[in-house]
C-alpha cells in the first residue's frame, strides 16, 4: 500500500500537541494506523513537545506534593503492554476507528441518502461532524465546495477528482477554495471516513445528496 496523500502538518501537529479535537484525532489517528511515514512525523512533533516541556519555566510544587505522591506508589498494579488482539486481518477499519463502530465495517448500519450513496454518523462535537460514507462504483456525491475544511480518509475502494486519485490510507484535505466533484472508482464501493467543521455548500442543491449527510 503506497499512501500518496497525507494530512497537512497542521492536523498532525494538532494531534501531537493535544490541541486537536476528538474529531481531528479520530481522522488523524486512523490515518496513522495505516501510515508509518506520518507516524514518524508525529514522533518528531512529540519530540518538540518534549523539548518544550524540558525547557519550560518550572513551577514549584507544593511542599507536600512529593510525599503524597510517594504515599500512593504502593500496591499499584503496574501496567504492561496490551495483549495482541485475536482478530485476524483483513480488517477494513483499523483502531481507533473500530472502537467507534464497535466492530469492522460489516457492522455498520448504513443510512441511504440517494442512489448509490449511504452514510453513518459517528461523532458530532460542536460544529465538527465525523461520518462514514459509502458510495457505489461510478457514483458521486455531487459538485460541492466547503465553508470550512473537509478531511476525507479512504478506507476501501477509491475516488478521483480534479486533485487526484485517492485510495486506502490516502487523506484528502479540502478548503473553501476547492470546488470538487469526487467520483467513485470503478473497482468497488468506496468507503471513506469524513470530517467537516462546517456544512458543505453544494453548487447544485438538486444533486447535493451529501447535504442530508452533513445536516444541510
Amino acid at each position: 500500500m503506497t499512501i500518496r496523500h497525507h494530512p497537512e502538518d497542521e492536523f498532525l501537529l494538532a494531534h501531537a500537541s493535544g490541541a486537536g479535537s476528538e474529531a481531528v484525532s479520530l481522522l488523524v489517528g486512523t490515518h496513522l494506523a495505516l501510515c508509518p511515514e506520518c507516524r514518524g512525523r508525529v514522533g518528531a512533533m512529540e519530540q518538540i513537545g518534549g523539548a518544550l516541556l524540558a525547557d519550560v519555566a518550572p513551577a514549584e510544587m507544593s511542599s507536600s506534593a512529593l510525599s503524597s505522591a510517594m504515599a500512593r506508589l504502593d500496591d499499584v498494579p503496574e501496567e504492561s503492554s496490551a495483549q495482541a488482539s485475536d482478530l485476524s486481518p483483513p480488517l477494513i477499519a483499523p483502531e481507533p476507528l473500530r472502537s467507534y463502530i464497535h466492530g469492522d465495517i460489516d457492522r455498520v448500519r448504513w443510512i441511504p441518502v440517494g442512489p448509490g450513496v449511504s452514510y453513518r454518523p459517528l461523532l458530532t462535537r460542536d460544529r465538527e461532524r465525523v461520518q462514514l460514507i459509502r458510495t457505489a462504483p461510478g457514483t458521486g456525491v455531487g459538485t460541492h465546495t466547503h465553508r470550512g475544511e473537509e478531511l476525507t480518509l479512504v478506507l476501501a475502494g477509491g475516488f478521483t477528482d480534479l486533485t487526484g486519485s485517492y485510495r486506502r490510507g490516502d487523506l484528502q484535505t479540502t478548503t473553501p477554495e476547492i470546488v470538487h466533484r469526487p467520483v467513485t472508482d470503478a473497482d468497488g464501493y468506496c468507503i471513506t471516513l469524513a470530517m467537516t467543521d462546517a456544512p458543505l455548500k453544494f453548487t447544485n442543491p438538486v444533486v447535493g445528496l451529501l447535504g442530508k449527510v452533513f445536516g444541510f
Binding site: 508509518p36 485476524s88 480488517l91
Partner: peptide, 27 residues
C-alpha cells in the same frame, strides 16, 4: 473529559513501518 483516539500498534489492521528505521530514529 474527551477521548483522544489514536492508533494501536497491537491492532491486526495496523500497518507496521520499517521500525526502528534509521530515518525516524531521532529519539
Amino acid at each position: 473529559r474527551e477521548r483522544r483516539p489514536d492508533f494501536d500498534p497491537n491492532d491486526p489492521a495496523f500497518v507496521p513501518g520499517e521500525e526502528p528505521a534509521a530515518d525516524a530514529r531521532m529519539m
